[in-house]
Simulated scan of single mutants.
Amino acid sequence: MTRTIYLNGSWVDEADAKVSVFDRGFLFADAIYEVTAVIDGKLIDYAGHAARLRRSLDALRTAMPVSEDELLELHKDIARRNGIKEGLIYLQITRGVQDRDFVFPPDMQPTVVMFTQQKRVLDNPKWKTGLALQSVAEGRWSQRQIKTVQLLYSSLMKTEAHRQGYDDVLFVEDGYVTEASSANFHIVTPEGAVVTRDLSNALLHGITRGSILDLAQKAGLAAEERLFTLDEAKSATEAFLTSATSFVTPVVSLDGNRIGTGEVGPVSRRLLDVYIRENLERGVPVAG
């Protein structure tokens, strides 16, 4: 059974979904994207993803191709058409099609693509075992707060880390941790505070990141947004990643050094449980 793809206002079979070779997303990586998780037929943290989509488009001076209400209906519709009860919805918007030129006109028609992926989001084995990370030098472009498709460096570094037996990489810039290849990174200090890098152009403004900070504070945990070093990360009692489809994933080692006990800690486990429970309660139903 093939998937139904949304492409520029039409619903097409995945075999027929074609984008021009002159699309600036292909030629210049001039595009942004969002990934929304679906659990139990509900869109998870949808409002945050929609808001970040607008911010990314504004930053690239790309027009929003549909209204907010239409965007939500498209997410519901594509989930229904593909029978997605658990998985993800991928949305990509490029600046559009133009003969290759570094200078682009202000009135281009964006290219919009949406597809679904079946995925057992709630069956993540790393929630039980934790991740092993490798620190690497930051090598991405400087505007990381925009969720662009410029992911080559992250892909190269993560692939090399996998070859060496690690699960992911942790980027470090001027001695300070920024984030992982496709997720925000957090630590728990010996004093019990949840610490994450403060928002700036140095890292993606993760939707799950923001939700976790709110949940930590509601749970009575101290939450700090500040710079922290690689050494501080290695001396943490716990660490974890947050992202749209893996939620809260514990990190148990960094550069071969055990973090805390080297096992999944109680803070990570608690935040994961609370995040799933609360977002299932307030998730946007696909049906209806």
Rank of each mutant, 00 (worst) to 15 (best):
A193T: 08
G192H: 10
R163W: 09
E173W: 11
K147M: 06
G192E: 10
A132P: 02
Y153W: 15
V169L: 06
P190S: 00
V177A: 09
W127L: 04
I146P: 07
H186W: 09
R197H: 09
E191G: 09
Q134N: 14
L133R: 05
N124H: 00
M157G: 10
K147Q: 12
L131V: 02
E173D: 11
V169E: 03
T129E: 14
T159E: 13
E179L: 06
G175E: 03
V194S: 01
N184H: 05
N184G: 04
V169D: 01
A183P: 03
N124P: 02
V136I: 05
D167S: 01
Q145F: 15
S182E: 08
F185H: 06
V177H: 14
G165N: 01
D167K: 00
R144S: 14
L203I: 05
K128S: 11
L199E: 10
D198R: 13
G165W: 04
Q134A: 15
E160V: 05
P125F: 00
L204C: 00
T196Y: 06
K158R: 14
W141A: 12
L151M: 12
N201H: 13
L131F: 02
G192V: 13
V172W: 04
V177F: 12
S154Q: 15
N201Y: 11
D167R: 01
G165K: 01
F185D: 05
N201S: 14
A180L: 03
A161V: 03
K128D: 10
G130R: 01
V177S: 11
S200F: 01
A193Q: 09
E138T: 02
L204W: 02
P190W: 00
K147Y: 02
R163L: 08
F171H: 07
S135N: 11
T189D: 10
Q143R: 15
A180I: 04
L156N: 11
V172H: 05
R197L: 12
I187Y: 05
P190F: 00
L203A: 03
D168T: 01
K128W: 09
L204Q: 03
S155L: 13
P125S: 00
V149E: 05
T129Y: 05
D198H: 14
D174G: 05
E179H: 07
W141S: 12
S142W: 13
S155I: 13
V195H: 11
S200D: 03
T159R: 15
V136M: 06
S182P: 07
Q150F: 13
A180V: 07
T196A: 04
V177Y: 08
A137S: 09
G175T: 06
G192A: 12
T129M: 05
L156A: 08
G175W: 05
A202G: 00
P190T: 00
L204K: 04
V172Y: 04
A202M: 00
V149L: 08
D168L: 01
A137P: 02
M157S: 14
S135Y: 12
T129H: 07
V136Y: 00
E160I: 06
S154G: 15
L131I: 01
P190H: 00
T148A: 08
L170N: 13
A193C: 10
R163N: 10
D198G: 09
L199N: 08
L152G: 09
G139R: 12
A180Q: 03
E191Y: 13
